[in-house]
Computed example of a mutant assay.
Amino acid sequence: MISDGARTYSISELSRMFEVTPRTIRFYEQEGLLEPQRRGQTRVYHDKDRVRLKLTLRGKRLGFSLAEIREVIELYDALPDGNARQLRRLLELLAEKRTNLQRQEEDIRLMRRELDDVEGRCREALEALPENTEG
């Protein structure tokens, strides 16, 4: 859509562009991440909404909560030095995510060791059984 010289988007255009359902876009709107204009019942999304949707989807892929995504977007929108504050906050959140991932990696390593140990004991016990006891 082109309106007043500025590019706008319908919900179906954004849906196709980002390969998400219109329901997903409406959900993000309900959560305050998108702010389309209304023309009657029709939602009209501007480039700002397209960028916000892109950032939201990227944030979700990286494991950010909607509250964290909203915080970063609002920092950028609300402050004259929003970009610098936004980037600093994003770096903090990324560091937290990295720490959590490292903790999860260690948990997975420990769990694999435990699984290997239990599997080894099961195989040893199975081999110790007389051959005709298998069902």
Rank of each mutant, 00 (worst) to 15 (best):
L126A: 12
E105F: 00
G32L: 10
N100D: 11
S12D: 12
Y9E: 03
E29W: 09
E13P: 01
R26Q: 15
P22K: 09
K97N: 06
A95V: 00
D116C: 01
E127D: 15
M17H: 11
I73M: 10
L94A: 13
M1G: 11
L66A: 04
D107S: 13
E74T: 11
T133F: 03
R113F: 15
D116V: 05
E127A: 15
R43E: 02
L14G: 05
G59F: 03
D116K: 13
D49I: 09
K60W: 01
L93S: 04
R23W: 05
R43Q: 02
E124D: 09
L34G: 05
E114F: 08
L87M: 10
R109C: 07
A78Y: 12
L110C: 05
E127P: 08
T8S: 03
E119C: 04
Q104W: 07
T56H: 07
G59D: 07
S12P: 00
T99N: 15
D107Q: 13
E13S: 06
I73P: 05
A128Q: 13
R103G: 04
L110E: 12
A6F: 03
N100Q: 13
V20C: 04
L34R: 01
L62M: 14
E134P: 01
R121C: 01
P130M: 02
T99F: 06
L57A: 03
V51F: 12
Q30P: 02
R103W: 03
K48Q: 14
E71G: 04
E68Q: 11
A125W: 14
L34M: 04
S65M: 02
R38I: 00
G32P: 13
E92R: 12
A78P: 02
N83Q: 14
L110I: 09
L94P: 00
R50T: 10
I73T: 01
A67D: 01
P130S: 07
E19S: 14
E35I: 09
Y9P: 01
E124F: 01
Y28A: 04
P80G: 13
T56F: 06
D81Y: 05
T21G: 13
R38V: 02
Q104L: 15
T21W: 05
L94D: 06
A78Q: 15
E35K: 13
P130K: 09
L75K: 04
N83E: 15
L87V: 10
P36C: 11
L57F: 08
S3K: 12
D107P: 00
G5T: 08
E114K: 14
L57K: 01
L79C: 07
E68C: 00
L75F: 07
E106H: 10
R103L: 08
R109Q: 10
V72M: 09
L53P: 03
I69F: 02
A95Y: 02
E13W: 07
S10D: 01
D47K: 07
D107V: 06
F27I: 10
Q41A: 13
D49G: 02
D49Y: 03
T133G: 03
